[in-house]
Each structure stands twice: as C-alpha cells, then as structure tokens.
Simulated scan of single mutants.
Amino acid sequence: MAKYMLIMRGSDESVAKMVETPFEEILETMGRYNDELIRAGVLVAAEGLDDASNGVVVDLSGQTPVVTDGPYGETKELFGGFYILDVASKEEAVEWARRLPAFPGTKVEIRRVPGIDEFPQDNEWIIKERAWRERTGQL
C-alpha cells in the first residue's frame, strides 16, 4: 500500500458553479463519496479549505519574506481541498480521483506521499520524527 494525495484545483468555472449550488447538496454529494472511501478502507485524511480570501501567502523567494492577504491572482493557482488515500497503486488513486464528485472545470492533482521508511534511518531528524510518530500513534 502507498499513500497518495488528491489535490482538488478549482477554476473560475468550477468556483462559480459551486457558489450557486446549495450547500446541503454539496454535503450530500461529497458525503456519499467520502463514505465510499471509508467503506473501501482507503481514506486516511480529507479536508476542504476555507475561502481563499481568508488566507495569506508568504512569499519566500526574496531576501525578506513578503506576506500577502488573499484573495489571490487566478483561481487556477488555488486548491480547495485534499484527500490522502492509502491504496495499492497510483492507478487505484487515479480511479478514485475519476470518481470524485466535482464541479466542471475542477482538476485533481495526484501525488504520492513518501513514507518515513524511505528516508535514511540513521539521520537524527528522521529518528526524532519516527519517535514522534510512534508516540502519537502514527506508526
């Protein structure tokens, strides 16, 4: 099994459609999908994000970090939520992404989440992280 993150990226079209859809309808649709993931035993985490206008960006590209309040430039630069799935393969993650109920114009980026066992086990920071994960029940 491997963990994969599904990152939902909106567009102007998908955000407009979402705004006009009753919230209860969105909850029902996403709830059914989430329940499917839970019943399949592949859901590790899932979160939607607050409106981008309430967020900030910290730009570290210069010598001094620059903080900018939302909203940001283009909708396509934002992601609105994510899932982390523990599945057998990237192909299985793709299949779950294809079934994700999303508004037209939404894109889903799929990225593998490397496990701690893939890092050098004699590194002091990996040793500390492994101990923290064990203490918190993550391993």
Rank of each mutant, 00 (worst) to 15 (best):
A2T: 02
A2Y: 01
K3R: 14
Y4M: 00
M5Q: 00
L6F: 05
I7A: 03
I7F: 02
M8Q: 07
K17A: 13
M18T: 10
V19H: 12
T21R: 08
F23Q: 15
E25V: 05
I26T: 09
T29Q: 07
M30T: 09
D35A: 14
E36G: 15
L37R: 07
L37K: 11
R39A: 11
A40L: 09
V44A: 06
A45W: 11
A46P: 04
A46W: 01
E47F: 14
G48S: 12
L49V: 09
L49D: 03
L49C: 12
A52H: 06
V56N: 13
V58A: 13
D59R: 03
S61Q: 05
P65Q: 01
P65I: 03
V66L: 15
V66W: 03
V66Q: 11
T68H: 13
D69P: 06
P71W: 03
G73R: 14
G73H: 15
K76W: 14
L78C: 06
L78A: 12
Y83E: 05
Y83G: 05
I84P: 08
L85H: 01
V87E: 03
V87N: 04
A88K: 13
A93Y: 02
E95G: 08
W96P: 02
R99S: 05
P101Y: 04
A102S: 14
P104D: 15
G105C: 06
T106F: 12
V108W: 02
E109M: 06
I110P: 01
R111N: 02
R111I: 09
R112C: 04
G115Y: 04
E118Q: 05
P120T: 10
N123H: 14
E124V: 05
I127M: 15
E129N: 13
R130L: 09
W132E: 08
E134S: 06
E134F: 02
